[in-house]
Simulated assay, not measured.
Amino acid sequence: MLSEKSTATVRATLPAVGAAIGDIADLFYTKLFAAHPELIRDLFNRGNQNAGLQKQALAGSIAAFATHLVEHPDTRPDVMLNRIAHKHASLGVTREQYAVVHEHLFAAIVEILGEAVTPEVAAAWDEVYWLMANALIAIEERLYAEQQVLAGDVWRTWTVTGRVEETPDCTTFRLAPADGAPAPSHLPGQYVSVQVELPDGARQIRQYSLSTSPGSPVRAITVKRVHGPAAAGPDGEVSNHLHARVRVGDTLRVSAPYGDLTLRDAAAPVLLASAGIGCTPMLSMLEHLADTGHTAPVTVLHADRSPADHPLREDHRALADKLADSAAHFWYEESAELGHHTGHMDLTAVPVAPGTTAYLCGPLPFMRAVREQLIAKGVPAADVHYEVFGPDLWLASA
C-alpha cells in the first residue's frame, strides 16, 4: 500500500509523469543499454526495442500500476503483475537487476522532468517503483521455487528430436532434455523461452507456447517465421534462425515453462479463440481437455488468412472432435471453403454457454474485438483471459 503522503503526491503528479512516461522510458533504455550493453545483446528482444514496443509496454505498466495505487489503495493489480512476473521468470530475471533498472529509470525521470522532481516527488515515485518491484520479485521467486530452480537459473539444454513443416511459414520443433532427465511439468497454455546464438554473437531470447498437453510424452513448439522489411534483422532474427539453421539433432537452450494463461476451472464451459500462431496454447489446452475427459461445452474459434496458413489445422480440428461436447468455427479471409466462415471472426451466430471461461491468443486488435463481442454476449470481463506474444501492449494502448 502506498503511504498517505506519497498517494497525494503521486495523484498530483500523475498527469505530468503520465504525459512524459514515453520519453522517460525511451531515455531509460538508452541509459540502461549504454551502461550494460550485454542486456540488449543477451536479454532484451532487439526487435521489440527497435520497434519501440518494449518502451510502450514499460510506460503502460508503470502508469497503470501508479494509477491503480491511487484509485484502489487497498488492492494490487495482480493480473498485470503476474503476467509480467511470468515473462521475467522465463527470462531468468533476478532481484539484483531491479536495482540496476531503478538507477537508470530515475536518472531518466530527473533528466526529462527537471526541476519538477522535488525531493518529495522523487520519494513518492521511488515508493511506487519499489512497491511494484518488490511485488514482482516476490512472485518471481515463488515461480522459481515452484520449478525447483535457483532464482534466474531456468535454462537447460534440449535436443531437437523432430521437425515438421506445418505451413510455408510455420515449423514445429519437437524437443527433449539433452541429459535424458524428465521434462519439467507444465500447465496447458504455458510457454518456454528459447535462446539462440546468432551470427553476430548475440544470444537472443524469444518465447514460444508449448503446443502439447502436460500428459503428452512429447514437448513441442511451433514457430512462425517473421517476414517484413527487417525479417533478416532484429524483428525476425530468431524465428528466421530457427527455420533456416536448426535441424534434428541440434540443441537449444530452453527455459522452464511459465505463463499465466492456463485453464482455471476444469469443469466449466470453455471458449478458446485464436488467430494465426496464437492457436498453439489453445492446442495444448484442447489436448489436455481431451486427455482428462472434459464433458462441459467447449467452443473452438480460430481466424487466419487462409486454410493453408492455419498452423496445425488438422490437429486443431481433430482435438476438438475428441471432446464430448464441442463446436469448432474457423474463419479465413482468403477462402470460401465449404464448412468455414469467410472474413473476420464474427460471434453473432456462435452460441456461448452460460458460465463460460474464455481464453484468447492472437494479435491485440483481434483479441480486443473478440473480447468486446464476448462481453456483449454476457461473458463477464473477469472470465476473459488473454496471452500476448511479446510485450503486453494492452495496457499501453488502453
Results as ranks from 00 to 15, higher is better:
Pro351Cys: 12
Ala336Asn: 11
Val254Ile: 12
Lys322Ala: 09
Ala12Glu: 15
Tyr332Cys: 04
Pro188Ile: 12
Gly259Pro: 08
Thr67Gly: 14
His186Asn: 05
Pro269Thr: 05
Leu131Trp: 01
Asn82Trp: 01
Gly233Glu: 05
Thr159Arg: 05
Val70His: 10
Ala290Ser: 07
Arg203His: 07
Ala232Cys: 01
Gly343Lys: 00
Tyr258Phe: 15
Phe330Pro: 00
Asp383Pro: 02
Ala220Asp: 03
Thr212Tyr: 01
Thr356Trp: 15
Thr262Cys: 06
Met285Leu: 02
Ala108Gln: 14
Asp200Gly: 07
Val10Tyr: 00
Thr348Lys: 07
Leu312Tyr: 04
Pro73Leu: 04
Val100Trp: 03
Thr357Asn: 10
Val226Thr: 11
Asn48Glu: 13
Thr157Glu: 11
Gly52Phe: 06
Gln97His: 15
Ala8Glu: 15
Trp331Leu: 10
Asp78Phe: 13
His72Ser: 12
Val352Asp: 09
Asp200Ala: 13
Leu289Gly: 08
Pro391Ala: 06
Thr295Phe: 00
Pro77Cys: 07
Asn82Lys: 12
Gly60Ile: 15
Ala328Phe: 00
Lys31Met: 08
Val226Asn: 07
Leu263His: 02
Ile109Leu: 14
Glu337Arg: 09
Glu38Gly: 14
Pro354Gly: 13
Ile112Arg: 15
Lys31Trp: 01
Arg41Met: 10
Val352Asn: 06
Val160Cys: 06
Ala124Leu: 07
Ile109His: 05
Ala12His: 15
Tyr258Asp: 04
Ser90Met: 10
His288Ile: 08
Asp321Cys: 04
Ala122Asp: 08
Gly339Glu: 00
Gln147Pro: 05
Arg83Cys: 00
Ala124Asp: 13
Gln49Thr: 09
Leu69Trp: 03
Ala303Val: 01
Ser61Tyr: 13
Leu14Val: 10
Thr292His: 10
Glu141Met: 03
Leu272Cys: 04
Arg95Gln: 15
Leu338Gly: 04
Pro214Gly: 11
Val196Asp: 02
Ala64Tyr: 03
Thr172Asp: 09
Trp125Asp: 15
Leu242Ser: 01
Lys5Met: 09
Glu96Asn: 13
Glu71Val: 14
Gln190Ile: 02
Val300Ser: 08
Val101Gln: 11
His302Ser: 09
Ala327Leu: 09
Asp153His: 05
His241Gly: 01
Ala256Tyr: 03
Leu105Asn: 05
Glu333Met: 08
His294Arg: 11
Ile21Met: 15
Asn134Ile: 08
Glu96Lys: 13
Leu252Gly: 05
Leu136Met: 15
His88Ser: 05
Pro77Glu: 11
Leu360Asp: 09
